[in-house]
Design a binder for these strands. Structure first.
Lengths: 345, 345
DNA sequence: TTTTAGCACTCTCGCACTGAGAGTGCTAAC
DNA sequence: GTTAGCACTCTCAGTGCGAGAGTGCTAAAA
């Protein structure tokens, strides 16, 4: 589809754009990357790339900017290469985390903080909480038209309460129905198992025939999500990025992240859907508020069980190579620690 | 100092400015507030008020804007009046919190969220954690040049660990010294008591003669601070305020808040220094990043012991009357709940 | 056939200029 | 002490212009 030369030029354009954050012109590519071609030739190729939807011009006399498709091509190219493990970073992290190997909370707290500091992007990690707790009984009570109360009784006799805000009102009898279904379906499973069951159920019944069952499952999922631990760092740093001289984009990001459910959902899906690295570029994101951003995410594991996810959220024009290598390194590292393996940085 | 008329006009100007966020001119005051005076007279009074430092002009042909001093006058005026308890808010809160009276964490979480939603300012609450835990032994270990580990051993034999980031390196022997001093000084006290002792110690020895003792106390305080619970809401809403078309101010606020220690310190001081309401306007704030903002804060109590603080952070031009009434209502309410009193909204 | 040089064209961006509008300070009259 | 009137000042939005950057196209060169 694209010949070798076009590929090279496309990648050069994306790289250039990532570095300089200005529309990049043919002359610049010719000068900086050479390729033994004149700017005119490169101009022609770039025109072709524009026709194919990889680049676009903000206006006639400006250089070109990669489209989401252009970024996607670039990222796929990176991903297909051998991962460059960032040994320096790993060594630094090892040092920082050495003393708290048994404290996953602190580890994630510090890891996200470090990631944010090192990259200047927003760093988020989720860690499903108390996954092995076995649920004995669930009760649901209506508190008001917009709020319901979940009571989880665990095998050890401890009761956990969660309040959910709901948008469409449900009657107490509906809630009783839902509770009955949930108890029947999930009795005796651990929270982790329930999570997975819910996920399977939700993908299986894409056309949910029974509205109540569908609703029950969704409610339960929400309630379990709020049990997660969530670590967020680097908010203030995003402001420093030249991409966001314009405030409105940041505002949307802040709103999306402050509504923790959105992020939790996103990472949750990641944990059970994809394995390993995932990059979500701009419009590929379901969440409207985040379509001006890109996400580089990775699941980390405990033995073979997916245990949580860690990600970087930055501008579409983020330094993907660096972000991918970092997130990968960090999540591999956490996987190793959780699985009791050692690592020699 | 100010005659009755000048006071009235000053208050009118501040109120006007709070509502419209534009420099307010003499004509506007004359029209809207009357006072049976012409704009020329008001102009003269405003010129006087400017000389006295209550108002200032951004430029010759603009109206006037209150200075911090002007705001302070206005706020003192509000504070000295009978508090208007916001019964509607209280009733709403009572409803929302009815089912979780025994869960302070959830209560504060929801309270801050509600406050943020209702006011569009950033809402923060702190709640010192496990204040009655009695400390048996403290150990301090050096982890690296920038990090040390605190081990608190409680009377029940539980060990709590805290890692602190420090700026100036300390040797292990210095840390041992510090630990020895802390153990000697605070043995057998509860965390709350230690907090108070530390606070007294810090104010007493303003000229800290012994650098090591001073350092020890500060370290210990830091470590205890990180035990606090902190609730923050309403970040994204601040963006909506017309005050902040200019991004840089928000950036500073976000940075200040993301550095949780700053906020915790601020609220901590509040808990032990002032009792009841406190309003901090612009430059009155020690924290540089927050000098473009105002804070309306209140301590809440459990019986007679200060238990935590709750505050609203907004632009200097915030609606103080509303903010004060809300924060006061909310903190009174929480005090009542914590103290086991009932309230009939 | 592919690449290159040259050139006219287009569009943005920063800058200076301008007039309307708002608010002031001052003076003289009430 | 208060008010009306007026000249003055400053901001702000809109306009026009020239420099600069990058393009697309054409014709010549490889």
């Amino acid at each position: 589809m694209l010949d070798e030369r076009a590929k090279k030029i496309l990648i050069a354009v994306v790289e250039s754009y990532i570095q300089r954050l200005d529309p990049v012109g043919s002359r610049h590519i010719a000068k900086k990357y050479g390729f033994d071609l004149s700017s005119a030739t490169i101009r022609n190729v770039m025109a072709d790339l524009e026709e194919l939807g990889y680049l676009f011009q903000p206006h006639t006399s400006a250089g070109r900017i990669p489209t989401d498709r252009g970024f996607r091509f670039y990222v796929n190219n990176i991903l297909s290469n051998e991962p460059k493990i960032n040994t320096l970073l790993i060594r630094e992290l090892t040092r920082r985390l050495e003393d708290i190997r048994d404290n996953i909370e602190l580890m994630l707290e510090r890891t996200t903080k470090s990631l944010a500091t090192l990259t200047h992007y927003v760093s988020v990690a989720s860690h499903p909480f108390e996954g092995n707790t076995i649920i004995k009984k669930i009760e649901i009570k209506k508190l008001s038209s917009s709020q319901i109360l979940f009571n989880f009784e665990t095998a050890e006799g401890i009761t956990k309460r969660r309040i959910l805000d709901i948008s469409t009102p449900l009657s107490q009898s509906e809630l009783n129905e839902a509770a009955r279904y949930i108890n029947l379906r999930f009795f005796g499973y651990s929270i982790n198992e329930i999570r997975e069951l819910i996920f399977k159920e939700m993908t299986r019944e894409k056309v949910m025939c029974d509205a109540l069952i569908s609703k029950s499952i969704r409610l339960c999922r929400e309630a379990l999500l709020t049990e997660d631990m969530l670590f967020i760092h680097g908010f203030s740093q995003v402001f420093e990025l030249p991409d966001f001289f314009n405030i409105s984009k940041i505002r949307e990001l802040v709103r999306a992240i402050e509504d923790k459910h959105l992020i939790l959902n996103l990472l949750d899906e990641l944990i059970y859907k994809s394995n390993g690295m995932k990059v979500i570029i701009g419009n590929e994101n379901q969440i409207k508020e985040m379509q001006d951003f890109s996400i580089v995410a990775s699941t980390y594991y405990e033995k073979d069980r997916p245990a949580g996810a860690i990600c970087l959220i930055g501008p579409k024009r983020m330094d993907y190579a660096k972000a991918i290598s970092m997130v990968r390194s960090v999540s591999d590292f956490i996987t190793d620690v959780l699985s009791g393996r050692c690592r020699h940085g």
